[in-house]
């Protein structure tokens, strides 16, 4: 494979014609990259931090001037109020959310890799129009589809059950298109040719050759899908009932009544984020361990 990739490279390497002046490499102190990234991380982490601040203070502090920027001492009290709220049923909601998001994520990644590979590398009649159709499916505004979808779920007797919030989301036009673009870019034809010469079937080629190359992109897709499912509110809120809460619909009950205790809501949201953080680290490793570090150098 090394040889094959080298065949690809020169075409690209020839491009940089601009003979930029040689710059001395910075070796001393903190690199500007780290400074910029640190800044970005601070800005990025701010919402989570602000959530923590609000979750750890009594509700009244939130609207004080100047705005509170340091955590207070009420975090455990607020967290306990969430966990002890029987209406919310947080534990069960977490299990439901894990199940719904997990199944949807596995399906989306698998189906997207399959379809993405097919659209990028397999020749079949109607490939381009069908790909165009996938693109079109992404352009449909979702908000209005809620009512017909609800009618459909009523007909299928799925209203109020977990499959109602899972089944429509086991495929994703976004996922198919993402993987298709990635396959075009990352899987050279020569690689497939080599697999064919080894006598591999198309499915074997997909599983043993293509899928490993797709790992970083698949991990990104998995992460994004999982987060999207986990945080989805509008549809689950509409179609699920009390016996089958997801984390988001359960948390919405914290805001019941005319009056919203923001500190309580933030404490709940913070709890809802924790499982995501775990998933984050899981997929994070996959993304970091991208193929090229190990693969090419051998």
């Amino acid at each position: 494979m090394t040889a094959q990739l080298e065949r690809v490279e020169p075409a690209v390497v020839r491009r940089p014609e601009a003979p930029a002046p040689a710059r001395p490499r910075r070796r001393l102190g903190v690199s500007p990259t780290v400074v910029v990234l640190a800044l970005v991380t601070v800005v990025s982490a701010f919402p989570l931090y602000f959530m923590l601040v609000m979750a750890s203070r009594p509700n009244g502090d939130i609207t004080s001037v100047p705005p509170p920027l340091t955590p207070g001492g009420e975090l455990w009290t607020n967290l306990e109020r969430v966990l002890s709220n029987a209406d919310v049923g947080f534990g069960r909601a977490v299990l439901n959310s894990l199940l719904v998001s997990g199944v949807a994520t596995v399906c989306v990644v698998l189906f997207s890799c399959l379809a993405g590979f097919a659209f990028a590398k397999l020749r079949f009649v109607g490939r381009q129009p069908l790909l165009g159709f996938v693109l079109l499916t992404m352009m449909v505004p979702v908000q209005l589809g809620l009512i017909p979808l609800y009618m459909l779920m009523t007909k299928l007797h799925l209203v109020g059950t977990l499959p109602a919030v899972t089944l429509p989301f086991v495929v994703s036009g976004f996922g198919v298109f993402l993987m298709r673009q990635f396959v075009v870019q990352a899987v050279p034809d020569e690689l497939l040719e080599a697999a064919r010469l080894d006598g591999a079937s198309i499915l074997q080629t997909f599983w043993y050759v293509v899928l490993p190359v797709l790992r970083p992109a698949a991990a990104v897709l998995a992460l994004l899908t999982f987060m999207e499912r986990w945080n989805d509110f509008l549809w689950p809120y509409l179609v699920l009932d009390l016996d089958h809460p997801t984390v988001q619909t359960a948390l919405s009950r914290l805001a019941g009544g005319y009056y919203t205790d923001q500190a309580l809501v933030m404490a709940g949201t913070l709890l809802g984020v924790l499982p995501l953080l775990a998933v984050f680290l899981l997929f994070g490793r996959q993304i970091v361990g991208g193929i090229m570090e190990g693969g090419i150098k051998s």
């Binding site: 990234l37 990025s44 959530m51 994004l224 945080n231 509110f233 948390l251 984050f280 490793r285 993304i287």
Partner: peptide
């Protein structure tokens, strides 16, 4: 690297309501 790379996604992890 994991830390930096995951760091940029933090705003997205937070639910839209929050």
């Amino acid at each position: 690297r994991t830390l930096w790379r995951m760091g940029v996604l933090l705003p997205n992890i937070t639910s839209i309501a929050a």
